[in-house]
């Protein structure tokens, strides 16, 4: 059952992703993108990452999509909806994307992941609630997925080696923020 739900989510992810890049109306595109992000967060749940799933929803659906909708509305006034949505190299783009996907599929298919049995291949119950996730942990999963705390430790405790990068990313975020304002600001002249 839960497997079926996963495949349904996966189908939604791919389909809405495709739609978000093919429909002509940019607002629809943004909405399909939000849907894709929701689907991806569902996939994250299947990977025992409840915290990251919620972060995914918060950031992508809540922030990035909203920013994109802002951008669309700021640049839309002159956009002609009847204009072609695709550029001249559409055919080659489809070809390149398809070939890359096929190559990736072939690579995955040939890899050892197909047959390999993984020791931590745990059985999952329903993924709709935290308790189910906890169940999975009790069934032998690593405690690292249990809560936010482990991730926080990993990111912030110096002995784990990511503390500096974490702080640095925060600086990057800040400078991106400032930079975005500077770039988007109206030219004084």
């Amino acid at each position: 059952m839960s497997n079926l739900i996963f495949y349904a989510i996966a189908g939604i992810v791919v389909a809405s992703g495709l739609l978000s890049l093919t429909v002509r109306n940019l607002f629809h595109c943004a909405l399909f993108l939000a849907m894709t992000m929701f689907g991806v967060s569902g996939v994250f749940l299947y990977l025992n990452s409840d915290f990251l799933a919620s972060v995914q929803v918060l950031i992508y659906v809540g922030a990035v999509t909203v920013i994109i909708i802002f951008g669309i509305s700021l640049t839309r006034n002159l956009m002609d909806d009847r204009a072609k949505a695709m550029n001249r190299q559409l055919l080659f783009a489809v070809l390149a994307a398809a070939v890359l996907t096929v190559i990736l599929f072939a690579a995955i298919h040939q890899s050892s992941f197909v047959t390999q049995e993984h020791p931590m291949a745990v059985t999952l119950g329903t993924v709709t609630s935290d308790t189910q996730s906890m169940t999975a942990v009790e069934a032998g999963a690593s405690p690292v997925f249990q809560s936010v705390g482990y991730l926080a430790d990993a990111l912030l405790l110096p002995q784990n080696g990511f503390a500096f990068a974490f702080e640095f990313v925060s600086i990057l975020l800040l400078s991106a923020l400032v930079g975005a304002i500077v770039i988007a600001r109206k030219d004084p002249s």
Binding site: N87, Q89, F92, A93, A96, A97, V99, L100, I103, A106
Partner: peptide, 22 residues
């Protein structure tokens, strides 16, 4: 001057290299 042309070349090249290697 079209950025997407350049991107196409990059991805196309990746595809070609993959094919050549495999």
């Amino acid at each position: 001057g079209y950025v997407q042309n350049y991107a196409l070349v990059v991805f196309g090249a990746v595809a070609v290299i993959f094919l050549l290697v495999s």
